[in-house]
């Protein structure tokens, strides 16, 4: 028996919007720790890892570990029927091939339940080792989204270079080139507006902009994003979900031929 009640149901709506472009079908894993997902995109270039910790739910009952295969487009269709202030409860019985999403309006005058068929998904679960990153950049998530969007109108790939002075995003295409430098800027009024660079050594890596643009669908989840870079390692783009967990995207770098 599984019953997860999330008062801030809009979080779940935002989570689905953040991952459904990248991943078509995925297993949602439920355990005492929380509600999680790990899935690769169809070309196995990027990986998304989601965690919503059990403590973040108003009510969290998960009698045994459960893996529920879902088509994310279909989940998104169901969750779009929930109001933005609705409380969302996810329910499933042991051995059942369906999951139920229950939506309650804040004043309890409207209650809806949507039952969705589960599917069998053969997914590879990858072990992500802890790594020391050469550089970690934390910046406003809206700024990062803007940069990825702007650069993708010029080129297909971006070179992200971190030095002590700042982080540089560069691209080149048929019509020309573009460089955007964000300097470290800790002296802002609000901490979420800061650009902070923790650097062990300078690093420069190339990534496909198409994927970074998909990652920025998570922007509504967090005011800030952190980008962790190391040579010859996938970049980690992390959006923290307040008090609950995170959505992390891993993207394999492009390697010079």
């Amino acid at each position: 028996m599984l019953e997860l009640r999330l008062v801030q149901g809009s979080l779940l709506k935002k989570v689905l919007e953040a991952i459904k472009e990248l991943v078509t079908d995925a297993n949602f894993d439920c355990s005492a720790t929380g509600f999680s997902l790990q899935a690769m995109d169809s070309s196995h270039v990027a990986l998304v890892a989601l965690l919503l910790r059990s403590e973040g739910f108003e009510h969290y009952r998960c009698d045994r570990n459960l893996s529920m295969g879902m088509n994310l487009g279909n989940v998104s269709k169901m969750l779009r029927c929930a109001g933005s202030d609705d409380i969302i409860t996810i329910k499933a019985d042991d051995g059942s091939d369906t999951v139920t999403f229950m939506f309650e309006s804040p004043n309890q005058d409207k209650i809806a339940d949507f039952e969705m068929k589960l599917m069998d998904i053969d997914s590879e679960h990858l072990g992500i080792p802890d790594a020391e990153y050469q550089a970690i950049v934390r910046m406003p998530s809206g700024e990062f989204a803007r940069i990825c969007k702007d650069l993708s109108s010029i080129g297909d790939t971006v070179i992200i270079s971190v030095t002590k002075e700042g982080v540089k995003f560069s691209t080149a295409g048929d019509i020309g080139t573009a460089n955007i430098v964000c300097r470290q800027n800790k002296t802002v009024d609000k901490p979420e507006e800061a650009t902070v660079i923790e650097m062990q050594e300078p690093v420069s890596l190339t990534f496909a902009l198409r994927y970074l643009n998909s990652f920025t669908k998570a922007t509504p989840l967090s005011e800030t994003v952190s980008i962790s870079l190391s040579s010859d390692l996938p970049v980690v783009v992390e959006y923290k979900i307040a008090d609950m967990g995170y959505v992390r995207y891993y993207l394999a770098p492009k390697i010079e031929e």
Binding site: M40, S43, H44, V45, A46, L47, E124, H125, L126, G127, I128, P129, G155, D156, T157, T206, A208, L233, P234, Y250, L251, A252, P253, K254, I255, E256, E257
Partner: peptide, 14 residues
């Protein structure tokens, strides 16, 4: 833009 590597080359199957 170089050759695109895949994520499974970096992370082991758990």
């Amino acid at each position: 833009g170089g050759k695109q590597s895949i994520i499974t080359n970096f992370f082991k199957k758990a």
